[in-house]
């Protein structure tokens, strides 16, 4: 996945696609006083997250790039939380794994699909008014409908094609030599909103982007054309299941206003706000599932690894 950093023959060069890794804990709380501590681990194709929930409330998380294999990525994600809070696996009452590497989380008690976990996580982050969830992950894109409890009622996923995924965004950031976090803001610094490049194929969008640069477009304008393509792409996916009021976006691209604002414009609907990092929705949902299971079945013995 991270070929620019690990290819044995690649020269050292700036990694424009590299997004910020992030570790956080709620300093106002003390996990030692919690009755139930549960952990959700989301091992995605590009990023891995660990979320700690104390008595059903978000307590800490760590979000980082997925390494070469799922078990290590899961362990490293948890290690980040341990370093920040002192919490160890022996203090945890249950671990649920999710994401594409969910069956390879060595210390998890149960695996739950990312569809169910994203819905549950979004229900916590955006409240029980959330009905439509768009998750733009590193290598896939999901559209989910859920009820007021965060239970999935309808979903579809596209992981066949890179158009409309974070990977597609990384490609353009590398091509333009602009850090990925700047793409969104820059896409609005244009004299006139351009037409979208190909919204169905990243490879074709890339050649179109190069042709536009040659034809005299500024980098910002090319980025705008690309963000518009990305937005058109995910909106066409969303239309298959329909969009209901209570629209919530999760995943890394939720942090790119260049895509989010264009999606909102195409749909004519505003996405709900949240203060919580959009990338942790899956792991948060997994930790919340674990919390419910602890209420039903009692604490589980830790699995050593």
């Amino acid at each position: 996945m991270s070929q620019t950093s690990t290819a044995p023959t690649a020269e050292a060069k700036p990694e424009f696609w590299r997004w910020q890794e992030n570790c956080w804990a709620d300093e106002t709380k003390d996990w030692k006083s919690a009755k139930a501590i549960t952990v959700g681990i989301d091992v995605g194709s590009v990023s891995s997250q660990c979320v700690v929930v104390a008595d059903g409330e978000l307590y800490a998380y760590n979000s980082m790039r997925t390494g070469n294999n799922s078990p290590d990525s899961a362990k490293n994600a948890f290690k980040g939380v341990t370093e920040k809070t002192g919490l160890t696996l022996n203090d945890v009452h249950m671990v649920v794994g999710t994401g594409y590497g969910r069956v390879n989380v060595p210390f998890s008690h149960k695996a739950i699909t990312e569809i169910a976990c994203h819905a549950r996580g979004a229900n916590y982050m955006g409240g029980n008014g959330v009905r439509t969830i768009l998750d733009m992950g590193g290598q896939d894109c999901k559209a989910i409908h859920c009820d007021e409890k965060g239970k999935v009622t309808n979903f579809l996923m596209n992981d066949k094609c890179a158009a409309g995924t974070g990977r597609g965004m990384e490609v353009i950031s590398d091509l333009m030599q602009i850090p990925i976090a700047e793409l969104g803001p820059r896409s609005f610094e244009v004299d006139q909103e351009p037409d979208a490049v190909s919204s169905v194929c990243v490879v074709f969008a890339k050649s179109e982007a190069l042709a536009l640069l040659k034809a005299g477009y500024t980098k910002n304008k090319v980025i705008a054309a690309y963000c518009q393509a990305m937005a058109e792409r995910v909106v066409s996916l969303l239309e298959r299941i329909g969009v209901e009021e209570g629209f919530f976006i999760t995943g890394g691209i939720a942090k790119n206003p260049g895509v989010v604002k264009r999606i909102e414009k195409l749909l004519g609907i505003k996405a709900m706000d949240t203060k919580i990092d959009s990338q942790i929705a899956g792991a948060l949902g997994a930790a919340l599932f674990a919390n419910t299971l602890v209420q039903k079945q009692g604490p589980q013995a830790p699995i050593a690894c």
Binding site: V152, T153, N154, F155, L156, N158, D159, K160, C161, R240
Partner: peptide, 16 residues
């Protein structure tokens, strides 16, 4: 729950 399995690519939309 309605579960849609499949994909959309340049050639069209294919979901069961």
């Amino acid at each position: 729950m309605i579960a849609n399995y499949g994909y959309k690519d340049g050639s069209g939309e294919y979901y069961i």
